[in-house]
């Protein structure tokens, strides 16, 4: 792959700080430890617009444990807990 984001290390969105911007590389529901099954989690993430190539920006964080996070996904804002955001691999 000769993506311009190859130079940045991949990381789960769940670890991103406020102000982080990046592009979704892939989804990895198995890594999230969510209460949902992998298929269900992946389906829901896609339904909310978390697909490969989408631009994301962490806009806001909650008070307790900086959780949940409000993420700009292209042109909408989605609130998600960090636990589920661990399934979204960004760079």
């Amino acid at each position: 792959m000769t993506d311009i984001h190859d130079t940045r290390p991949q990381m789960p969105l769940g670890l991103a700080q406020r102000g982080y911007t990046g592009v979704i590389q892939h989804l990895s529901a198995g890594d999230a430890g969510s209460a949902l099954s992998d298929i269900e989690l992946e389906s829901r993430l896609i339904e909310l617009g978390f697909v490969e190539g989408a631009r994301v920006e962490v806009l806001h964080e909650g008070l307790v444990g900086r959780d949940p996070i409000a993420v700009r996904v292209d042109n909408i804002t989605i609130a998600v807990r960090r636990r589920e955001a661990m399934a979204i691999i960004v760079a």
Binding site: A35, L36, L41, L48, P68, T77, A79, V80, R81, R83
Partner: peptide, 10 residues
Amino acid sequence: APAPFMLELP
């Protein structure tokens, strides 16, 4: 196990 919180902020 806590269920996920995913919500659009319109």
